[in-house]
Simulated assay, not measured.
Amino acid sequence: MSVIREVPFPSPDSSELPMNIWIDDADSAIDVIDALALSPFATGAQPWSRLANLERVRPDAPLSPPSGRVLRTARVDDGSESRLISGDGWTLRVVRHRNRTAMVSVTAVTEELAKSVLEQSIDGAEESVPEADHVEMGFWWRGTHGGTRSEKPITAQTWSDISANYPGKVRPAIDKLMAVTPGDVSGRLILLHGQPGTGKTTLLRTLAKQWHDWCQVDCVLDPERLFDEPGYLMEVAVGYDSDDEETQRWRLLVLEDCDELISAGAKAQAGQGLSRLLNLTDGLLGQGRDVLVAITTNEDLARLHPAVIRPGRCLAQLEVGPLSRDEAVAWLGTSEGVGPSGATLAELYAIRSGRAITPATSDESTGLYL
């Protein structure tokens, strides 16, 4: 039997909530904190709100101004913690997760106070991005309230460091792609095709590092939803622009393993998905937006939709195949384990580590993400 209770809000401005919150045994302590944090904003007592999502939060970061008073704290077994903190004219909600991300939201009686409290709470809270072999990459997914984007540092090497991982016949084309600048952009689509385990994903990480000065790379985690939901597509296509024109950059949207989207039968399989992709790359949707799209696929070029590979649409169209026998032997330093037809990058790593190689089936579609 559910027990319903009215919860008072211990605010420094008043002894009880200006509105009623009803909870029952289905609600958790964190749900209560969520409701209490929103109540001053919902009633208009604190009509200004500011929010920040943080990555790589320092373990010792207080995420609160020194003057704050902790009203509620709730911890979950998975390591998450939620806190409700208040001060003179403001209320702060802090949610910390085990993976060192956090969300900080503030409501206040004035816009200036909300901004000030948020700045004090997050100042110096994040560790700096690791240098040398890391680059910031964005990740998009469709959440409950629309598109959500998060930035994380990923490991990435320079092209000169990994060029030996790719066949000599494709290296000149990759050289050209790595050296592209905004003035060189003549097509909006980058197509990487080839069998699994040949290093397509590794190549995109390196591209993010090589283009870092002028292009932000974002990976879309649910591309099938991206082109199925126009609202989500608009959010991702518009992106986030800075008010400072000097910091506005091109964006590269990465869509991995989108065989169904660009195959010869894509129109029948994916409905309007193919049309919306083409519209983003060189149609009305893409006009005025400095957006490039990179797609990886395990399909052979001959099996792709002709509209995708028509002249002028692709900035680069690269077949990333296995290394020849001579290249594989040079990479490995020995001929042991290398077949007469060569080896993929994934196979070479497996041989070097002493792991057995499992032959890929003909319908392999997941890739080996190297």
Rank of each mutant, 00 (worst) to 15 (best):
G283W: 02
G283I: 01
A268I: 08
V291S: 00
R276Q: 10
K267H: 10
A270D: 05
N279F: 00
A270K: 12
L292F: 11
E260H: 09
E256S: 01
L255F: 05
C258P: 03
T281L: 09
L277E: 02
D257K: 08
L284Q: 13
G288V: 01
Q287W: 01
C258G: 14
L255T: 08
I295Y: 06
L278W: 01
L255Y: 10
G265C: 08
G271T: 01
D257H: 11
A294Y: 02
A266D: 07
A266Y: 08
A294W: 04
L277F: 03
D282H: 14
V293H: 06
G271N: 04
L284N: 09
D259G: 11
R289L: 09
E256L: 02
L253R: 09
L278I: 12
A270W: 01
V254E: 10
K267T: 14
Q272S: 14
V254F: 10
E256P: 11
A294C: 15
Q272K: 10
L278H: 00
L261F: 00
G288F: 02
T281N: 06
Q269A: 13
L292Y: 05
Q287P: 01
G288P: 07
R276I: 00
L284Y: 05
L278M: 14
L292H: 07
L255I: 05
L285M: 12
I295L: 12
S263K: 09
A270Q: 12
L252I: 07
A294I: 01
L278Y: 00
G273R: 05
D282Y: 00
K267W: 03
I295F: 05
D290L: 00
L277C: 04
L285H: 00
D282S: 15
D259V: 03
I295Q: 05
A266P: 07
S275N: 14
L274V: 04
L253F: 09
L255D: 08
Q272W: 05
I295E: 03
G288Y: 02
V293Y: 09
L284C: 00
I295H: 04
L280R: 06
L255G: 12
A266E: 07
I295C: 12
A268N: 12
G283Q: 01
V291I: 15
T281G: 04
E260D: 15
E256C: 04
K267P: 02
L252C: 14
